[in-house]
């Protein structure tokens, strides 16, 4: 705790009082913000964790299938089969504001080109059924993967904001507000002391005048 380096006069006192009021109010608001952010964050992060576990498991399974496919097919054939995709996925990203944190909201736009029905971009004659399995598994994971992307990004951004908010709350609570309070107290004491000094001096002066009269 250190008192601020100011002159002890009424002007400073009223200025500091104003600052203290603002700091207290700011602290309260930030604290509320932190609590609410924390609540949302905990909700999201649990979902995030579960989703990631699922996605990782599914992805690994799909990669295994793909590995099998690449084992039974020649690399050139495999590449040729997938090189010209039938589908294109684009993202529509909007901003959403959660407690002043801008988080992305992602919508996925899937466009199938050509005939509907088959998701495979190749003919069935020259490719193995393992490849079909791998692609169709991956295809079914995709929505989850994209959801994971959205939630994980949101969590990252929120974690960052919570950290910042916490630092601000702590700075106000343990530094700014105590400093201001101490300084205000110091100025009050000083002013009172001055006042007492003035009164004694006046009494003394009065005594001297009465003696002379």
């Amino acid at each position: 705790m250190a008192k601020l380096n100011v002159n002890p006069n009424r002007m400073e006192l009223s200025k500091l009082k104003g600052r203290l009021a603002i700091a207290t109010r700011g602290h309260k608001l930030l604290k509320d913000k932190q609590d609410e952010l924390m609540r949302r964050f905990i909700e999201l992060i649990k979902k995030n964790k579960k989703l990631r576990e699922e996605v990782e498991k599914d992805l690994i399974a799909s990669f295994k299938e793909f590995l099998m496919a690449s084992a039974v097919m020649s690399p050139e054939m495999l590449e040729e089969a997938v090189v010209y995709p039938k589908e294109s996925i684009t993202l529509d990203i909007k901003k959403k504001n959660i407690m002043s944190v801008n988080v992305p909201v992602m919508n996925f736009v899937r466009k199938l080109e050509g005939d509907e029905g088959s998701i495979f971009p190749y003919g069935l004659a020259q490719t193995s059924s393992e490849l079909d399995d791998a692609i169709s598994t991956l295809y079914s994971i995709m929505p989850k993967l994209l959801e994971l992307a959205e939630i994980e990004k949101t969590c990252q951004l929120m974690a960052d904001e919570i950290m910042k908010t916490r630092r601000r709350v702590n700075a106000l609570e343990y530094r700014t507000i105590p400093d201001l309070q101490e300084t205000i107290k110091y100025i009050r004491m000083k002013l009172e002391e001055n006042e007492r000094g003035t009164i004694t001096r006046l009494m003394k002066v009065k005594d001297i005048i009465q003696k002379e009269a």
């Binding site: 990669f63 793909f66 997938v82 589908e87 684009t90 990203i93 692609i135 995709m142």
Partner: peptide, 22 residues
């Protein structure tokens, strides 16, 4: 509002399958 793309970075054996999905 703008259409964004999706990219996959990784070793070829792992990421080739994503190619089929566009």
């Amino acid at each position: 509002i703008y259409m964004f793309k999706i990219g996959v970075v990784g070793d070829k054996d792992s990421v080739l399958a994503f190619k089929a999905l566009g």
